[in-house]
C-alpha cells in the first residue's frame, strides 16, 4: 500500500485517490482547516454582533442572514459535491469518490435543513408566518427531500459497494433533474402568486453588512470542508475495520471447519 502511494508513475489524482495517501494528507490538513474555520466564524460572529449595524427596517432579525445565507449556499454545494463524486465513482471507479459522496449527503442535508429552519425563524417576524410557498423555500425543501432519498437508499442496501454504485446513479439522475425542478418551481410560483417578498440583492447590500457575510460564508465553507474531510476519514476507517472483522470471521470459520474435519 505504502509502496503504491510513493510510485512516481502515477498522476496526481491517482496518488490522492489512494486511501492511505489520503489518510496521511488529510490527517495533516484537517487540524489547520478546523482551526481556520473556528477563527473565521468567531471573527464573523464578532462583526455580526458588535460591528455590523441593524437593518433600519428589519432591526436585529437581519442577523439571521449571516447564518442563513451560508447555510443555503452550502446546502446546494453539498449536492454539487455529491454529483461530482458520483460521476467520479461511476466513470473512474475511484473508491474515494464514493466515500466523498457518502460523507457529503448528511452534511448537505444538515445545512439545507439549517437554511430552512433559520429561514422560517426569519420569516416569522418579517412575513408574519413561519412558512411561505416562495419559490426559493420550496426548491430548498425539495433539495432536502433529494438528500433524504439518497441517504435512505444507501442505508437500505447492506452491500457497501452496491449501495455506492446505486447512490451514484441516483445522484446523477437527481442533479440532471434539479435544474428542471428549480425552473418549474419558479414558474409555479409566478403563476400562483406575484413576488411578494422584498429580498436583499447582492449589489444593493451595504458594505457594513456585506463583509461580515463574506467572512461568515468563507468560515462556514471551511467548516463544511473540515467536516467533510473528517467524515471521509471516519468512513475509510469504518471500512477498514469492517474488512478486518470480515477477515477475522473468515479465519475463525476455517479454523473451526478444520477442527470439525479432524
Amino acid at each position: 500500500m505504502t509502496k503504491a502511494a510513493m510510485n512516481p508513475q502515477q498522476s496526481l489524482t491517482q496518488r490522492l485517490a489512494n486511501p492511505t495517501r489520503f489518510m496521511e494528507l488529510s490527517g495533516r490538513v484537517l487540524p489547520w482547516l478546523a482551526a481556520a474555520a473556528a477563527l473565521l466564524i468567531a471573527y464573523a460572529l464578532y462583526l455580526v454582533f458588535f460591528v455590523a449595524p441593524d437593518d433600519y427596517q428589519q432591526g436585529q432579525t437581519v442577523k439571521i442572514m449571516f447564518i442563513h445565507v451560508p447555510a443555503a449556499w452550502l446546502g446546494m454545494l453539498g449536492y454539487a459535491l455529491i454529483a461530482v463524486s458520483s460521476f467520479g465513482y461511476l466513470v473512474f471507479r475511484h473508491p474515494l469518490a464514493d466515500v466523498s459522496a457518502k460523507a457529503a449527503a448528511p452534511l448537505g442535508a444538515a445545512f439545507t435543513f439549517l437554511a430552512l429552519a433559520t429561514g422560517s425563524l426569519w420569516g416569522k417576524p418579517m412575513w408574519g408566518t413561519y412558512w411561505v410557498w416562495d419559490a426559493r423555500l420550496t426548491s430548498m425543501l425539495i433539495l432536502l427531500f433529494l438528500y433524504f432519498g439518497l441517504m435512505a437508499l444507501r442505508s437500505a442496501i447492506e452491500d457497501d459497494a452496491l449501495a455506492g454504485k446505486l447512490c451514484a446513479v441516483l445522484g446523477l439522475v437527481g442533479v440532471s433533474i434539479l435544474p428542471i425542478i428549480k425552473f418549474s418551481v419558479d414558474w409555479w410560483n409566478t403563476l400562483h402568486q406575484p413576488a411578494s417578498v422584498i429580498r436583499l440583492d447582492g449589489p444593493t447590500i451595504h458594505p457594513d453588512l456585506l463583509w461580515p457575510l463574506l467572512y461568515s460564508a468563507v468560515g462556514f465553507s471551511l467548516l463544511f470542508f473540515a467536516l467533510h474531510t473528517k467524515g471521509m476519514r471516519n468512513e475509510i476507517l469504518r471500512r477498514r475495520l469492517r474488512s478486518l472483522t470480515m477477515a477475522e470471521v473468515d479465519r475463525a470459520r476455517t479454523v473451526s471447519a478444520t477442527a470439525a474435519a479432524e
Binding site: 425539495i142 433524504f148 432519498g149 435512505a152 437500505a156 425552473f183 418549474s184 418551481v185 409555479w188
Partner: peptide, 15 residues
C-alpha cells in the same frame, strides 16, 4: 423507499 426517491422527481410534471 421508491416513493421517497421518485416523488420529488415528479414535481416538474405535476406543476
Amino acid at each position: 423507499l421508491l416513493a421517497l426517491l421518485v416523488l420529488p422527481l415528479y414535481i416538474p410534471t405535476l406543476i
